[in-house]
């Protein structure tokens, strides 16, 4: 019976603090905004018995979702988040792959140090790492001062508060999430496979595309999901580095909730975001489980 207790403890915790909250969000997304505490209606009133439940059920509707489709702000925000997430995932992959590859090819005694160097920023505050770009990308910032003094540019560039800054911030902060799974996959790669491929007539480049890339597939998948999914809901980076025209759904949700205090609309925004992300999340978990099973 110890086993049952061992399962029950984390299971109950997750049910109460992960699953139930989502059901509540789903329910509130079907409610209406109200000037009350809590600021929505209807609320379930069990003291009125059966009547209370029926009133509650009939009070729910899809009005908020219909509202989301009519206001172009929302679907533009979803599309723009999707675009930013896809592009920045590809950029992170392009930047991260050579790093992970070089790490996996480095001499054995160097690898722990290199690994530590990738992990170190990961332990450093995310907020601070995003913030550090503010001083670099600003009009009178470090980058512009440098470029002006070398003479590459004559006018300071406007990077901060644009989408470019958002992309830089995402690639920068999410790079370790991409590099680590890639490195884990590439490190396992047996050198003799590449030698065999070359022996059988592949050029080095060809061997890379035919052997290395396919065998690091799981790392590519894991890394891409680890970047794509959280970036879809990113709030800090667009808020600190983006401009007023940077539209991301995480920011919209935040403003809907904290500034407009429209909880039902914020909830339906969250539910739709979740619906968009559910497939990548399931794929990600499947990929992880496959990896573990292959190691058993």
């Amino acid at each position: 019976m110890r086993r049952a207790a061992l399962i029950a403890l984390p299971f109950m915790w997750l049910l109460a603090l992960f699953l139930v909250p989502f059901l509540i969000v789903a329910k509130i997304s079907l409610s209406d905004i109200a000037l009350a505490i809590p600021p929505y209606t209807p609320t379930l009133d069990l003291s009125r018995g059966w009547e209370g439940i029926t009133d509650w059920v009939t009070g729910l509707d899809f009005e908020n979702y219909i509202f989301l489709t009519t206001d172009s702000l929302y679907w533009k925000a979803y599309l723009s988040s999707l675009q930013i997430a896809v592009l920045s995932t590809l950029m992170t992959l392009a930047v991260g792959y050579p790093i992970a590859y070089a790490m996996s090819r480095a001499a054995d005694e160097w690898r722990p140090t290199l690994l530590m160097l990738v992990i170190l920023p990961f332990w450093t505050s995310f907020l601070i790492r995003v913030y550090s770009w503010k001083a670099i990308l600003a009009q009178e910032g470090f980058l512009n001062q440098l470029l002006l003094s070398i003479g590459i540019i004559s006018e300071p560039l406007t990077i901060l508060n644009t989408n470019i800054a958002v992309y830089i911030g995402i690639v920068y902060t999410y790079l370790p999430f991409m590099v680590l799974p890639l490195y884990a996959a590439l490190e396992k790669l047996d050198d003799s496979l590449l030698e065999a491929a070359e022996d059988l007539g592949c050029s080095r480049m060809k061997a890379f595309w035919l052997i290395t890339v396919p065998l690091s597939k799981q790392g590519i998948i894991a890394g891409s999901f680890l970047v794509f999914i959280p970036v879809m809901g990113e709030f800090v980076i667009p808020t600190l580095l983006g401009g007023s025209d940077t539209l991301m759904i995480g920011k919209v949700l935040w403003e809907e909730f904290f500034s407009n205090r429209d909880w039902p609309v914020a909830s339906s925004v969250a539910i739709i975001l979740l619906a968009i992300l559910i497939i990548p999340i399931v794929l990600f978990i499947k990929n992880e489980e496959k990896q573990w099973e292959s190691e058993v």
């Binding site: 603090l17 139930v20 909250p21 989502f22 509540i24 969000v25 509130i28 999901f225 680890l226 999914i229 959280p230 879809m232 809901g233 990113e234 709030f235 995480g250 949700l253 935040w254 909730f257 909880w263 914020a266 909830s267 969250a270 975001l273 979740l274 992300l277 990548p280 999340i281 990600f284």
Partner: peptide
């Protein structure tokens, strides 16, 4: 991987 905004919102509503 769940975006923080979703986790935060759902927990707050709970």
């Amino acid at each position: 991987v769940m975006p923080d905004v979703i986790l935060g919102l759902s927990l707050l509503l709970l």
